[in-house]
Amino acid sequence: MRVVALGWAVAVGLAAAPALQAQTYPSKPIKIIVAYPAGQGTDIATRYLADQISRDLGQPIVIDNRPGAGGNVGTDATAKAHPDGYTLTMGTNATHVLNEFLYSKIPFNAGNDFEPVVMVGTFPMVLAVVGSSPLTSARQLVDTVRTTPRGADIALPSTSARLVVELLKERSAVALFGVPYKGSGTAVTDLIGGQLTAIVDTPTSLRPHLQAGKLRALAVTSLQPSALVPGVPAIAEQGYPGFDVIAWNALYAPKGTPAPIIHTLNAAFNKALQRPETRQRLLELGFEPAGGTPEWLAGFGKTERKKWQVVIATAGLKAD
């Protein structure tokens, strides 16, 4: 009888542990794994938010950069971490959607191995041409390419840029050829030098060239115009309704992290994202501030995976 009672007491104690842990959370430093190098956009935005939120939560937030394999190395480290709220990751559309379909094998399941916490920020890509080009819209670009036998070469400094071109190629049925680059610098140089027709890149990367008049933005790839590139229409407004490609950053925890901890983190990030100074700084860094519930982020992720699985499979894209 004593054995049964002891066993029951242990079971109750184990069951109560997560609840007790959630009540005292956070009681030590929190680590956010960024699956990209220090100084990259996701890293800079994460460090800025971590500094603000650490003050609200009363604990330091440490950034742990673990780049490699398109973000898979750092993301896998979070998937295998103890689900206690002290190891998180700043996920992206690459790590939590695209890589699942671009890589033949990855060591985690983006849809099942994480608890969504909050959408942090989004940004569109920008379709741009050299400043001296007569083209002023994405529709003009497509119409011009349609009458050009050799098609058009488009610089692609990222996976997101590649998807923009593949989707536009599918929707317009014209010959667009993506030319991969490892960064924006050489791509912009080649575009200005006349070796390319256009480029698809982030607002942050292209902003100085647009402001200097070296490049001209034809369109943004979000469903609506973006505050990050004022005055530039969306591709969806230029004859391709529903065209929507955005990159994003969202916070995730390992699967099994207690719901009260998820809600504590969600509330802290939403509070920070609603501050005018935070929103302004994120816009300067190239992100449109987001926010919202864990449930919304979970549904968004499912929609994104369904959408891009089809596009990537149709185009036969592979990262390895």
Rank of each mutant, 00 (worst) to 15 (best):
R2V: 04
R2A: 11
G7E: 12
G13A: 02
A15H: 06
A15T: 02
L20R: 13
Q23P: 00
Y25T: 10
P29C: 07
A35Q: 13
G39L: 08
Q40D: 10
T42Y: 14
T42P: 01
A45K: 10
G58W: 11
Q59Y: 05
V62S: 03
N65T: 10
A69K: 14
A69F: 11
G71E: 08
N72W: 07
T75S: 14
A79Q: 13
K80P: 00
H82M: 12
Y86C: 03
H96A: 04
N99W: 13
S104C: 00
S104V: 02
P107S: 11
N109G: 14
V117E: 12
F123Y: 15
F123N: 14
P124W: 05
M125V: 00
V126E: 03
G131T: 01
T136A: 04
R139H: 03
T144H: 10
T144P: 00
T144C: 00
R146I: 03
T147S: 12
P149V: 13
G151Q: 02
D153M: 13
A155N: 04
A155Y: 08
L163V: 08
E170K: 15
E170F: 07
V174M: 10
A175D: 14
G178C: 03
V179C: 02
Y181P: 01
K182E: 15
K182Q: 08
G183Q: 02
S184K: 01
D190K: 01
G193L: 03
D201M: 03
S205K: 13
S205T: 13
K214Q: 15
R216C: 00
A217Y: 02
A219P: 03
V220Q: 06
S222Q: 01
S222D: 10
Q224S: 11
V232P: 07
V232T: 15
A234I: 05
I235Q: 02
A236N: 04
Y252K: 05
A253H: 08
P254E: 08
P254V: 10
G256M: 09
T257Y: 08
A259H: 07
P260M: 11
I261F: 09
H263A: 13
T264W: 00
N266D: 11
N266A: 11
A267K: 15
F269N: 07
N270V: 05
Q274A: 12
P276L: 04
T278R: 12
R279L: 01
L282A: 08
L283H: 11
E284N: 09
E284H: 10
L285S: 04
L285W: 12
T293W: 14
E295M: 03
W296Y: 15
A298L: 10
G301C: 01
K302N: 12
T303Q: 14
V310A: 13
A315S: 12
A319D: 11
A319I: 04
